[in-house]
Structure formats: structure tokens, C-alpha cells
Design a protein around this nucleic acid. Structure first.
Lengths: 264, 264
DNA sequence: GGAATGACTTCCACTGAGCGGAAGCCAGTT
DNA sequence: AACTGGCTTCCGCTCAGTGGAAGTCATTCC
């Protein structure tokens, strides 16, 4: 039957999930053709699956014919990690109101920091991070502080990889980074200075859970405030302590559902 | 061979999605057996699919062997409706800081209100609503205000259904509800008094987009404040205007991706 | 201790759901 | 009127998916 590009061995499940993931790679709505391309599926296969997903509300179709992730997906996903987000949210808000700066809550996911929550003001700011987004650990204050307090093997594994450079200021030398992490562990907080993006710096402190590092909270500020950002340390530490208290009674697994679902 | 409960005609996609939806019906982690039961699949089929979903990070397995929705799902879903949430978030925060009361942003989804965002303080409060959660429109202030300003056919369709009663105070008489909606349209805000849950009341105002009702913002307060809750109206209206301004340039579809993916 | 229970995992031969090339359709565009 | 690009439908072949049954592994109970 004339060859064809049939790629046997691919499960239906993997096709469905590829379709959903196609939307991660690109902002905004996708046409059927885009989806087929990004997910590596023949057009007619994509068509059939996309239709079914739309029927279930996992995709939605805009008036112009393009597709978007559906609200059903979002609704479902709200259950994920809710314990941590819900418990920590008011404190992250306090952190923002007390400092007036963009405040973050992040955890480790594989070799990256995953931003769980973020509270910010209405002034427009250049946003490198976003809720649900990932950044490398060595370039962010939340990442560094998590890495610093992680178990040795996690830190060692991390430092053995090629460290991505974001700006000229990113610390990518494993030796120097290791030394920096030691210092962070001693002083109890981490900072960055234009290591993800020019114009902004950040400071973060650890949040512990059952004796282990669980998450980190941090602030992002314009570089102009770099010299004085340690003035926020008392607030950061106070809020971290409150989050620790609020989450202490929640079993670790149900905080994020064993959050090592690391991409990469 | 020999009968068996094979249910032909069921697509793989539907099985995968049923598994994901199984987690909506029940708080917390599920065992494989639970999943199989809730999704109506034979155990071995569920096992295979669950394994694959876990591999992709759409489910995660806790140390105790139970499954949870995975972070991957949550990450993906953050893209949904981000435009509206991100644009409105700072204003909802202001609404909370200015009033000190739990603040909500909600849209209509089918015949229900869907809570898009929620800002609250650290004091423990009985929470009827949650982000990603749904409530009937006639029992909530945000719901009533959306219904009041919706197109006639939406309102008529709604009133033609059996209206669910949550407490003794829920307004379930279609005639009286219709009159109430007219009044809401005239006065420009809606209130409830213990209509979802005893002990709390609420007030909400509409948020328009391109001339149509797009969303609603509201406050939930303890019943003790019911008599004076209209004092928050100026703030509510001011914030609504700001959200309208902030979202005006965003095309309607990309706000939530044509949000009528209504369950029910 | 060992049998019984409950929950998960693996196996494997049958089969229909899924497949996808090709043809059809429908707006725009030239 | 021919062309183009993107979506939708069709349909016979075939392999991914299936799920009953048997195997494994804790835990509980006698």
C-alpha cells in the first residue's frame, strides 16, 4: 500500500498529549495546520483528535477557526498544587504590599525553578518570569537559594551540566557558582544582578518544609535598587516563616504532588 | 473471546480524558482502582494509560502509590485565559487591599459562573468559591450581575431551567428572580445575602468589554456586614472601570478563548 | 506462620479503533 | 476561471490497543 509516512509505535495517548503541548511552544491560538506541524501528526489525524478534544472542552475554537487550550483544562489543573498555592497566597500578597515589589513563590522542578505564584502591581514591568513558567536555577535568586539548600546530590548533578548564559552577568562557572551557593547557605539568602535580564535584580530566601528545602520566595526589583535590596530581608524572612508555619501541617506530597515532574 | 465488558466505540482519547476528569470529582489523590472506577475503564486499561500519562508528567505518582494531576498539566493550563487574568490581577489585588474583603473575578461559562481569580487575606474564611470553581449564577452576586447584563436569550434560557436551591435564602422563583435582575440592571450592582452559604453575603458589579458584559468583580463578606456592604460600591466601580480600560485593547477571543466551554 | 485479602503489574492473542492518503470543499486571490 | 491554502470527509487496511487472566507483593487476620 504505497509506503506513506506512517510512524508505527506511536500511541494515541502520545498524539493527544503532543497536541496539547503544541500550545506551550507558541503564544496564542493555532490553526489546525500549525497544530499538525508542531505535534508531528498528519493533518487528518490531527483533525480528528483536535475535534474530539474540542468536544470535551480541552481545546476551544475561536470564531476565526483557530484553536486555543480550553477552559476545561484550566479548571482541572487548578486542583494541582492547590494546597501550597492557596496556603501561601495571602503571605505572598503581604510580601508584595509590604515591599511594593513583584513577589514570587517558586519550587524546583527537575533542573529548573517553576514559578507557582506571583503578585505584582499594576505598573508595567518587564516580566521574565510568569506563573507556570520555568527558568534555570543558576540565573535566578529563587533558584540559587533552592539549589543552595538542596541535598548535595541535587546540587552536584546541577553543577555538572552546561550552565546556560542569559546575559553577560549570568554566573556560569561551576566552581564559582559552587562557592556562591556555599555563601548563600551561610547567609541565608540569595541575590542576582541582571543575570536573567538587564535592568532587574532579585533577592530570595528559602522556605523549609519538614526540615528540607521546599520552596523559595523572592522579590524582583529594578537594577537601580540593587544596592539597597537587602533592606527587604527582614520582611522576606518573616513571610517565609509564616508560610512555613501555614504549610507545616500539610503533608509534603500533597503540596505539589511530588513536584519533580521535571521537563529536561 | 467470550463476552466480556468490552465497550466498543469508545475512543482512546475519551478514555484518556476521562482519566484526567476523574480527578475533578474528588479532592485529593486517587489509587489506580479509584481511577479505573471513576473513568469506567477496566483496571488493566486504566493502568496502561495512567502509566503513559505519568510518563508525560500529566499525572504524578505519590510515594504512597496514589496518583495526582501532574504539574505538567498545570503549567500548560496557565496559558489559558492568561490575558484576562494577568491584566486584571493587579486591580483585583487593589480591590482587596482597599476593602480588606475577599475579592473575586468571574465570567460566565455555560449556565454557571466560573471563578477566574480570587484575592483574599490570611484570616481563615469559609470558602464557597475557589479559582477554577463554578457556582450557579442565581445564587451569587457575580452571577446575578452577569446574568442581568447578558443578552436576553441567555437570561431567558437560564430562567427556564430548574433553579437549584443552596440555602433557605436562595432565590429560586423565576418570576421574582427576573424582577430582581431588572432591578440589578437599573442600579448597576447585585447583592446576595446567605444565598450560597449561611454566614456570608456578597456584592458585585459588571465589567464590560466591547460594549457587552464580559466579567464581574465582587466581594464576599460576613453576614454581619450585609447592611453596610454598599459602602464598597465606589471602589468596586472604580476598579471595574480600570479593568475595562486595561482589557479594552485585548481582542475578546483571546481574553478567555471564547469562554463558553460550558459544562452543563 | 500461613492463608486470605486487596491492590497493582504483566502477559498476550485477538480485533476494531485509528489511521492517513486522497479526494472534496470552500473562501479568497490573481 | 483558474489557482491557492486550509479545512473536512471518506474508507479499507492494519497494528495499537485491548482486557481477562494469571502473577506479584504487601498487609491483615486467624
Amino acid at each position: 500500500m504505497a509506503g506513506g509516512s506512517r510512524e508505527p509505535g506511536r500511541t494515541v495517548t502520545s498524539k493527544v498529549l503532543s497536541i496539547l503541548e503544541a500550545f506551550e511552544k507558541s503564544r496564542g491560538a493555532l490553526s489546525l495546520t500549525d497544530i499538525a506541524e508542531k505535534s508531528g501528526l498528519p493533518l487528518s489525524t490531527a483533525h480528528r483528535l483536535v475535534n474530539e478534544l474540542t468536544g470535551w472542552g480541552f481545546l476551544s475554537r475561536e470564531p476565526n477557526g483557530r484553536y486555543q487550550l480550553g477552559i476545561r483544562l484550566w479548571e482541572l489543573a487548578q486542583n494541582t498544587g492547590r494546597q501550597l498555592r492557596d496556603a501561601a497566597r495571602p503571605y505572598i500578597q503581604d510580601l508584595f504590599s509590604l515591599t511594593g515589589e513583584t513577589a514570587h513563590l517558586a519550587v524546583r522542578s527537575g533542573h529548573e525553578v517553576l514559578y507557582i505564584d506571583r503578585v505584582y502591581g499594576s505598573k508595567r514591568l518587564p516580566r521574565a518570569s510568569r506563573v507556570g513558567g520555568r527558568l534555570p536555577m543558576h540565573a535566578t535568586a529563587v533558584g540559587k537559594v533552592i539549589l543552595a539548600f538542596e541535598e548535595d546530590w541535587v546540587r552536584d548533578a546541577y553543577l555538572n551540566r552546561q550552565l546556560e548564559r542569559h546575559t553577560a552577568h549570568t554566573h556560569v562557572d561551576p566552581k564559582r557558582l559552587a562557592a556562591e551557593l556555599t555563601q548563600i547557605r551561610e547567609q541565608g539568602y540569595a541575590t542576582t544582578l541582571e543575570e536573567v535580564r538587564l535592568g532587574s535584580c532579585s533577592i530570595a530566601v528559602p522556605v523549609f518544609h519538614t526540615g528540607r528545602i521546599g520552596a523559595a520566595i523572592g522579590l524582583v526589583l529594578p537594577t537601580s535598587q540593587a544596592a539597597t535590596m537587602t533592606r527587604h530581608l527582614p520582611v522576606l524572612r518573616g513571610i517565609a516563616a509564616q508560610i512555613e508555619r501555614a504549610t507545616a501541617r500539610i503533608p509534603l506530597e500533597s503540596l505539589l504532588g511530588s513536584h519533580a515532574a521535571g521537563t529536561e
